[in-house]
Every structure is written in C-alpha cells, then in structure tokens.
Amino acid sequence: MYILMKKVSCIFIVDDDPITVFGIKKMLKSAVSCDDIQIFQNGLEAHEAYQERIEEGKSAPNVIFLDINMPIMDGWEFLDELIASNPKEHITVNMITSSIDPLDYKKWNSFKIRCPFTLNFKNKPIFKIEGNELGFIEIAS
C-alpha cells in the first residue's frame, strides 16, 4: 500500500511494561521507518539519555511514547524535565496509560497548555499508531 514509508530519525519508548513495549515496537514497524528506537524502563533513564544526546550535540528524539506510572521517575516528572530543558526541535509526546482516572486526564490538559510541543493522550489498549502521533501533518484526502 505504502509507496514510500515515512521516516523518523529517533523514537523513545519509556515504559516499564515489556508487553506494552513489545506492542508499540510491533505497531511502529508497520507505520514508520526508524533506525533508532530506544527503550527505557523509567523516566530517569530516558531523561539521562536525552541529556546525553543534547550534550553530544545530537538532535532530540522526534517522537516519545511515555507511560505515566513508573518507578523512580514517573511520566509527569519526565515531562517536567523535558519542558524545563526547552528543546529546540519539535517533539511529539504520546502519553500512554491504562488509567481511566479523570485526574490523569485533567493533569494532561494542564500540561498540554504549557507544553511547547505536541502532547497526545492515548488510552490503552492501543491497536494502531496514527500519523499525527508520529509528528506527521495529516492531509485530508
């Protein structure tokens, strides 16, 4: 179907659940072409890797899949750090959670307002990754 698979240079998956990670990776395979997919078990690991990339002069990851409930540093704390680092490139962050707690949704809304980049909210289960979640501008046919 796809004449040309769209390309993304770097994707972060931050989630402590190996099954979810497996699922995201599998879905990405059919949606986008990316040679640099990095997996992190919690926010702190991802944050440290991000800092390292910036210090090495590399570009920020284009897309981040971010779980909310994680040990050591949760998704919200990671977002705080990311906003504070004021990234130069455009990033698309997809919050992925099984939580249906309205508090989490509210929190996402308040983050969205002060977020300089795209912040999506995606409830599990996920079956497909949409184009806008990969930072593509959808063109209506």
Binding site: I19, N69, S98, D101, K124, P125
Partner: peptide, 12 residues
C-alpha cells in the same frame, strides 16, 4: 488500574 492494564495488553 491494574486489571485494566492487563486486559489492555490482552486486547492488544
């Protein structure tokens, strides 16, 4: 939350 996360994984 916990049951939901498992069932979500099953569905997926």
């Amino acid at each position: 939350h916990n049951l939901r996360s498992h069932s979500a994984n099953f569905s997926m």
